[in-house]
């Protein structure tokens, strides 16, 4: 709280608003984890925090430190880049893992895998189903 006193009003106001908006969005996303019914609905909820929530907080931080130190402080962009790159990857991996687990248990709520076309060569980067099933074959 020592340095906040040096901040002029035109910078303090947007910083406060952005912080509150970002924290509110993160809380909304986490509340969605509690309120939504199934896993596939819940996996949508944290995206609120990881897209707009964290960008609002990062913008607030950039504005605050740039005005406070009277130079451009941009290193928050690193976290933004990291979030943009990593969030889709983790969510897709998690969704694929959940889909695979549900299918192997014979759950009715998930759609079945598409029927394999006869004698089609397995392209690299194919569906997780084919990759995993070849792994089963190797182990047994």
């Amino acid at each position: 709280m020592t340095n906040a006193a040096d901040l002029p009003a035109w910078a303090a106001l947007p910083t406060a608003l952005l912080l509150l908006l970002g924290a509110g969005l993160a809380l909304t996303g986490s509340l969605g984890l509690l309120r939504l019914g199934s896993f596939y609905e819940r996996i949508h909820a944290p995206t609120l925090g990881t897209t707009m929530g964290i960008s609002c907080v990062l913008l607030a931080s950039m504005l605050f430190f740039s005005v406070l130190q009277t130079r451009l402080v941009l290193h928050e962009l690193l976290i933004a880049v990291l979030m943009v790159v990593t969030t889709p990857v983790t969510l897709m991996l998690l969704a694929r893992a959940a889909l695979y687990r549900d299918r192997s248990e014979g759950c009715d709520e998930v759609p079945p895998p598409p029927p394999p076309l006869p004698s089609s060569p397995d392209l690299p980067g194919g569906s997780p189903q084919t990759q995993v099933s070849t792994k089963v074959f190797e182990r047994t």
């Binding site: 990857v89 969704a95 759609p111 598409p114």
Partner: peptide, 27 residues
């Protein structure tokens, strides 16, 4: 895949390279 997953409310679940379809989950 990244665009769809980064947008809240839609999620790219699976891609099937044999018949070139994707599975989308919508909230």
């Amino acid at each position: 895949a990244c665009i769809i997953t980064a947008t809240p409310g839609t999620l790219w679940v699976e891609y099937d390279s044999a018949d070139n379809t994707m599975l989308l989950h919508v909230l």
